[in-house]
């Protein structure tokens, strides 16, 4: 029994149960009206009506119910003003992927150029250092003004926030190829292009993949905020919209889904990284 308890996943499950129990206890005790609403009435009036009155934090059971409702209607597109949650997630994922892929296409080749040409790196570095710390959301109004389209603007925001970690990691990776490997290349007369393709590229792969992982995390972070500010779809918009309707349970469901998808993106990329990186 003791050994069972010390298994990390057992402890995780126990912690989760404890957390849910405390949550249930606190919300059921103080939430008052939420717990007392007649379920039949709540169904008739719609969830919003029942919770608008209360404004309290819903119980985990209520959240689970709401989650179930959202999931069975996830792909509902019958009402264009009230799309299923899956559509919103797909909108967000689509924007992240577009912005992210554009960022990869720019950051990786440019990172190689910077890593292999120290002079170029030095001359571009001031701009990188000034642009990098700018919050991606600071670009939002300017992007909306320039592109005059909220989707394009959010894609641009993703692009601009995802590019820096990949650019810098690729540059550092390409510049830091082990001297012994550079010497092998030189001694055996490997040409410039082949040197980049067959030595610098695989040698910097672990660094590139680390940059890509950091970037996808940041992009998934930023998409929620960007959609709250300037979009009519997407999971960020969904959360903001539910907030306006005081649908606290929906917001919590969305938060959990965002976390799960973020984790999936990271696991997927780290698996890819381990496949693409060399072993020693």
């Amino acid at each position: 029994m003791r050994r069972e308890l010390t298994r990390p996943w057992v402890a995780s499950v126990l912690l989760l149960i404890a957390f849910l129990a405390i949550w249930q206890f606190l919300t059921a005790a103080t939430g008052g009206p939420t717990a007392n609403v007649d379920p039949e009435y709540a169904r008739l009036a719609g969830q919003s009506a029942s919770q608008e009155k209360t404004g309290a934090i819903p119980t985990p059971v209520a959240v689970a119910k709401r989650g179930y409702e959202l999931l069975i209607n996830a792909f509902d597109s019958s009402n264009p003003n009230n799309l299923g949650i899956a559509w919103h997630l797909l909108y967000s994922l689509g924007r992240v992927m577009l912005g992210y892929i554009l960022a990869v296409l720019v950051a990786v080749p440019l990172g190689f150029a910077l890593g292999l040409m120290p002079k170029l790196y030095q001359s571009l570095n001031p701009f990188i250092q000034i642009l990098r710390p700018v919050s991606p959301l600071a670009w939002m109004p300017l992007a909306l003004y320039v592109f005059r389209d909220s989707s394009v603007s959010t894609i641009f925001i993703i692009f601009i926030c995802a590019i820096w970690p990949m650019l810098i990691n690729t540059a550092v990776g390409a510049a830091g190829v082990r001297p012994e490997w550079v010497n092998v290349s030189r001694v055996f007369g490997v040409g410039r292009l082949e040197h980049v393709a067959r030595i610098v590229f695989p040698a910097s792969m672990p660094m590139i993949m680390t940059g890509m992982r950091i970037s996808i995390g940041i992009a998934w972070f930023v998409i929620v905020a960007a959609e709250m500010v300037g979009a009519q779809s997407g999971i960020g918009y969904f959360i903001w919209n539910e907030w306006n309707n005081l649908q606290i349970a929906s917001m919590i469901v969305a938060i959990v889904l965002i976390g799960i998808i973020g984790l999936a993106l990271d696991v997927g990329l780290s698996w890819t990284a381990s496949r693409l990186s060399f072993r020693e």
Partner: peptide, 9 residues
């Protein structure tokens, strides 16, 4: 080379 310097990939 002393450190074998094989390319691991």
């Amino acid at each position: 080379f002393q450190s074998h310097a094989l390319l691991p990939w």
